[in-house]
Write a protein that binds this DNA or RNA. Structure first.
Lengths: 402, 402
DNA sequence: ATATCTTTGTAAGTAAAATTAACTTACAAA
DNA sequence: TTTGTAAGTTAATTTTACTTACAAAGATAT
């Protein structure tokens, strides 16, 4: 029996979260308006708001206009009333930031990994966090970490991060003990999804959403009813190694024909290099070894036939994969982020077309695929945003160093 | 803002559901034990139980043994205190049943569809329900309908059922108006999933579970945290038309290489017929046109090479699809139901092996694939069980004709 | 056999929190 | 200046779970 019992405290917490979320989603808003939106009564809202004012999370910022009655007192979130630390452990460099409640970066630290792994990599994490925590931003309410690899968020465990040679590392516990702050770890694609959802704007509360992060690797973050779905082991969304081509190219994971070998950023570069001799008319073919993502993007933009073939092929396989997700989940909103989105509209159109063709038309109806709005900041924002998404009540906890 | 506010009533309903669920999951249980499991206090449990006794949902059935204190009074669910009507609109025949709270069938009606569609098919539904409701089982608390096709459960709408020529038919509303009973419609695979989960035994509360129904068509029901996940349009789990083979056979949906054309019951028969001439050593090859599922099952059991090839191939592609689900959802528990499970252990082993090979090993770890326990009753049981799964409070509503 | 300890279940009173209803304040339009 | 209305607060009420206390019933030790 995993379901929690309901108590008055839970009730209050729920309604408090509801009010805070409503304030969060509006620029400014009056108590009466909150009452209308949440369907709570005005006295209840007043009660909650008073507490939020006391906690400093919300402030009165003036009066609004009226159409024949008392003017409403406008409230708004005090965006600098709490700070969070975000960490993104990307392949080449670890970067971290102090972020406020609106996702504004107040301080930043980045350090190249330079091949470090194991304890040395962990030391690098400590170094970044030592610096960020010593800057004096208060109160800090939590640490969020996004990292490639297989993560068990519930246990705060890095199950397997190949590049860093981490296996079953209880990173959350380690950081929690060292910095005395609540710590969440998640996959970087999941973090990017949350970042997009929380700070991207235009997403409805409790929506279903799939954000697919297409870089060298390909991963998805799945939001169900506005919450990150992670599956039993925290690995939900690991679509980069779904086989989409029988007997395809060998993937670094050992299998053949993984999505990553067909639609990822590294894959298109390698394929362009391989196909260079077959398409001598392309300017790219002159120097196959110098093909980079940048040069491919430029070539694709100018209609280079080699780039066209490779990039549209990649889009095709991504589309097939998305079609699988559409059929499996029947989620109607897809957002793409990551390096590959640099190929722009034509790439996106190709993805859309394949998806549509490979899906039952009744399911494809109403499904949208768009490019994300939060760009590179997604992952780092998302890491801290899980704090908000999963448990607003963290905002009410005074951290040990405020 | 779709989240509901919390009130005292909601709190009470929640705890009432919690207690009832606990009684449901136990054969017999005392108040004190309920309190321990739910973490509610004994007085609170007593209060709720008193109401349940009053409603007739629960009864005292004797005393249990003690280890040094007053003997507990044992409670149990009164399984015949409420009845539900289940309907399964299968391809060849519609069947319906009156079912009690433990899933025991009290009455049954079945009628061949005989090619009827449109309004005539609807008339058939009415006829079955008219009969079942006139039998006098009281109180009836709801109707559950499982049907092939694309269903929008939230709206109670049959979006598209090709065989019956129904499009955007608001069946739930129609039945609700006619019989004055709360009505739920869902896809038959989703119903089978719920049936397995609720009545299969051995499933934990709030577990994640995927039940794949492999018959002529192939569909999955996805349970997340013990609740049916249906996606935005109700079509989640429609995996039969996910493309698993580029340029494969033409499917009735218009695409090529759909899972259904490779791993479904009709597909294996057709493939066996096609390959008969190439495998003359097989006894099946003598009369290709007479190959049926029955004969294939027998042939496969006796190691016939033609049957082997076809069935293990089907298992392979099912395994590939499941691998996709494992990667996407990272749900660790899979259950297979439907005709195809008749191929037994060797088929299951082949599915397992392919799934394991086509998944990242860290994700495959801990994933189990088994054959369902509720067999053919799954769909019909599930249709009514949604009533319980989604909203125990229905049990507290007095229906109009009790 | 008696006393003691445990467990179950109930009763009475308390505390928390949302609701209702009434009221004050403020403002726009006529 | 009057009227109508909206915003926000206050106080009383209601709902519901919790705490405390206790009686009944049974097991165990002396």
């Amino acid at each position: 029996m995993a379901i929690k019992k309901a108590t008055h405290q839970e009730t209050k917490k729920h309604n408090r979260d509801l009010v805070l979320k409503t304030v969060f989603e509006a620029e400014t808003i009056s108590r009466a308006e909150i009452a209308r939106i949440t369907r709570l009564t005005r006295p209840t809202v007043s009660d909650v708001v008073n507490r939020l004012l006391l906690e400093g999370l919300v402030q009165e910022v003036g009066v609004g206009s009226s159409i024949g009655g008392k003017s409403p007192i406008l409230l708004s979130l005090v965006k600098d009333s709490r700070y969070m630390i975000s960490l993104n452990l990307a392949y080449e460099q670890f970067c971290g930031a102090v972020v406020n409640l609106r996702g504004e970066v107040k301080a930043k630290e980045a350090m190249p990994v330079s091949g470090r792994n194991g304890d040395q990599a962990l030391g690098l994490v400590y170094e970044i966090l030592d610096r960020l925590t010593s800057l004096g931003w208060k109160p800090l309410i939590g640490i969020g970490v996004g990292t490639p690899g297989l993560i068990n968020t519930r246990e705060g465990m890095i199950v397997n991060a190949v590049n860093l040679d981490w296996k079953n590392l209880p990173l959350a516990k380690l950081l929690q003990n060292r910095y005395h702050l609540p710590t969440h770890i998640m996959n970087d694609s999941q973090a990017a999804a949350i970042g997009e959802y929380v700070y991207g704007g235009g997403y409805k509360a409790d929506e279903n959403l799939v954000v697919i992060n297409v870089r060298q690797g390909i991963g998805a973050g799945i939001l169900i009813n506005g919450r990150l779905f992670q599956g039993d082991g925290g690995g939900a969304g690991e679509i980069g190694h779904v086989v989409v081509q029988e007997n395809g190219l060998q993937c670094r994971c050992g299998k053949r024909g993984c999505l990553e070998t067909l639609a990822g950023a590294r894959a298109v570069i390698q394929r362009a290099q391989m196909l260079a001799s077959a398409t001598p008319s392309s300017p790219l073919a002159k120097n196959p070894k110098n093909i980079t993502l940048d040069s491919l993007v430029d070539a694709f933009a100018s209609g280079d036939p080699l780039a066209d073939q490779v990039v549209l092929d990649a889009a095709h396989y991504l589309g097939v994969s998305i079609a699988g997700l559409v059929s499996t989940l029947n989620i109607q909103k897809f957002v793409l982020t990551g390096d590959m989105t640099r190929f722009g509209q034509r790439w996106l159109d190709a993805v859309r077309e394949t998806t549509s063709n490979a899906t039952l038309s009744k399911l494809a109806e109403g499904t949208s695929i768009d490019i994300g709005k939060v760009d590179y900041r997604g992952c780092i924002l998302g890491a801290s945003a899980l704090t908000l998404l999963d448990d607003y009540s963290l905002l009410f906890m005074r951290s040990s160093n405020d």
